[in-house]
Computed example of a mutant assay.
Amino acid sequence: MFASVLVAGAATGSLPGPDRKTPVGAARPAVPQARSEEIAKAAADAMAAGKSPMEAAERAVSRSGDRWGAVYSPAEYEEFEDALDGAYTGVGLWARREGRGRIEVTRVRTRSPAADAGIRAGDRLRSVDGAKVDGRPVTDVLSLLRGDAKDARAGTAVRLGMERGTRAWDLTLRRARLSTESVTAREHTDGITVITISSFTKGSGDAVRSALRRAPSAAGVVLDLRGNSGGLLTEAVTAASAFLDGGLVATYDVDGDQRALHAAPGGDTARPLVALVDGGTMSAAELLTGALQDRGRAVVVGSRTFGKGSVQMPSRLPDGSVAELTVGRYRTPSGRIVDGRGITPDLEAGSGVLRRAETVLSGLGEP
């Protein structure tokens, strides 16, 4: 579930949790009743027999064939909800997996354990607590850094193997409670503004609107969604509203019942826009990409996205653990299915993706 370049902590593409106040405009579909009751009964029966309700629920979810279904312990789900609220326990690293499978640090959060230890962008992460990370999915690297298997809390130690050029070294960091920086903006060459969204946490949609308002008037914008694992669907719709003047963002079904998500009116529809994507762009980030692409609002540059186009809804189990179940899948405005297919960019680009975006923007800016 946690496939993100925000290696210190991230959020998946879910609707609000069972104890969460629903944001204004959020969809709250019901978990398919039969499946939810089956899993809850398996957990309750296990509890009555003195066995682990969580393990019983995990087996039931596995038997259901739900590709994205998952069961979280109370502590894991608390971390998950904190991530959606913009807080997490970790060390403050953003990273990506290169073409050769190596894990490279792309950004270090200021005033974080990683920053205090002198780790910087471009460094290579070789191992976490002795486990080599080359070739592993970013999902696994995230889990190791967070200490998910140990329910690790702030203050717990994690040992990293690092490499910079020809130098290799090991160091031990203490996990800390950090706030996310899910939206950042910087001015690039020729007045271009690059807005990077690492995940859709609470408030990230409004942060995109604010970044757009601060950008130089009529200057091109690069919306960088590479490695964005998704997050709150409502925040992705708010981000879409920054670039669209109302209209359809996506449709989704819940047991055959069709629902729709719409952008708010009044967005900036004139500014040249390029969206950057890659194999780590998933879920709510794919929803945003598909809307901008289908409605002709942005040129999409990069590589095919991950292909997670499903909607999850959590339900609380008798022991306090949470089963998160798939309740439907979404389509782009033109009716494209994303789940298992991903979104194909308008222009393929690898390591020179930002340079390609600059070229595209220069063409879009011509009269």
Score class of each variant (00 low, 15 high):
H262P: 01
D45L: 07
R356V: 04
T166H: 15
R336K: 11
S310G: 10
V128N: 13
E163S: 10
R174G: 10
T196H: 12
S4G: 08
A131Y: 07
Q258M: 05
L244H: 02
I103M: 13
D134M: 05
E366Q: 14
L125E: 01
D319M: 05
V108W: 08
A284T: 12
L288C: 05
S198M: 10
P345A: 03
E163Q: 11
G122M: 03
L6E: 14
L317V: 01
S4L: 07
L145K: 04
D140E: 14
V221N: 02
L288S: 02
H188F: 08
S321R: 08
R120F: 08
E81M: 12
E37R: 10
I103H: 09
H262A: 15
W68V: 15
R67N: 10
P32H: 08
P32V: 02
V105P: 03
E55W: 10
R174L: 12
R295S: 03
F306G: 09
A114F: 03
A44N: 05
G256R: 03
E81I: 15
A49K: 00
Y88K: 13
R59P: 06
R341H: 09
D116E: 14
A34R: 04
A40D: 14
R336E: 15
D224G: 00
P345M: 00
R59W: 09
R97K: 15
